[in-house]
């Protein structure tokens, strides 16, 4: 699925979050969007899923403008996509199995035995076989994140959107999540959009990295291009420096 974001503006109350964002994600590509916390990365993902609507600008999936299609068609598109939320966003009234198989239980014609098999398969994919009977409250933070990935994979989507998949998990789990994203890309040619500020993860999974700053994409390129950038803002961000143009602007406001 080809995703085209053109000149998107979005304000919350009087605060401008997206300020003419444009980005294209080709089929089968893993695009990593980096940027500081609160710079609008998650908001951009929610626009792609059609949960938020832009004030102006267009978002097109496979050439279809999200603003112009019916809600039925939007839901059909959504069934081909999946999103992994930052905190997991598991439904805490349902078991892990109920969460992972949610879309299948609601919409598919599969028998419950087939759904259970698919759920188990998805859970095994994230190395959590046999936990379908647990409740989300019984899981650790890292497990919740992996169950959320399993829920996304269970519908066999073409596109997966990850919102900070490695934040708040231990380094080993983080690496296994990176590996999973990479292998889904390699084996299934899945399109992935990963929003993160974890640069190690970004270099590991990205075909291309784009940096969102002040609501705009200010740089885009392959991992090594970004790593060797001369752009002062990108340089400060990827090297995690306390002094630089990003913090200078903040100091000016202070």
């Amino acid at each position: 699925m080809l995703i085209e974001i053109k000149n998107v503006y979005k304000n919350f109350n009087s605060k401008r979050v997206l300020n003419g964002t444009s980005l294209t994600i080709s089929k089968g590509e893993t695009k990593v969007i980096i940027g500081r916390s609160g710079c609008g990365k998650s908001v951009l993902l929610k626009h792609i899923m059609g949960i938020l609507k832009p004030d102006s600008g267009t978002i097109a999936l496979d050439g279809k403008n999200l603003a112009e299609i019916s809600s039925k068609e939007l839901n059909r598109l959504r069934m081909r996509m999946a999103m992994v939320f930052q905190g997991g966003a598991l439904f805490d009234s349902l078991t892990v199995g109920g969460n992972v198989g949610f879309a299948l239980y609601e919409y598919s014609q599969l028998s419950s035995k087939e759904i259970e098999e698919r759920v188990e398969e998805s859970l095994c994919n994230v190395e959590l076989c046999g936990i379908h009977k647990l409740m989300p409250s019984e899981l650790s933070g890292g497990m919740k994140k992996r169950v959320a990935i399993a829920r996304a994979l269970c519908v066999r989507p073409e596109v997966v959107l990850y919102d900070e998949p490695t934040t708040g998990v231990d380094p080993i789990t983080a690496d296994s999540i990176n590996e999973l994203i990479r292998s889904l890309h390699d084996k299934l040619k899945m399109t992935s959009i990963v929003v993160t500020h974890d640069m190690k993860s970004a270099y590991r999974v990205a075909d291309k990295i784009a940096m969102l700053y002040n609501g705009k994409i200010i740089a885009e390129g392959a991992a090594d291009q970004i790593q060797n950038t001369h752009h002062p803002v990108v340089y400060q961000f990827i090297n995690g420096l306390a002094k630089g143009p990003i913090t200078e602007t903040i100091e000016k406001f202070i």
């Binding site: 929610k46 899923m49 949960i51 059909r76 959504r78 939320f85 598991l90 439904f91 805490d92």
Partner: peptide
């Protein structure tokens, strides 16, 4: 609580109103 933990957004991404 569902809203602030993004569970309501998650419902929408799972094509559920």
């Amino acid at each position: 609580t569902m809203k602030v933990t993004e569970q309501i957004d998650a419902l929408e991404t799972l094509a559920t109103n």
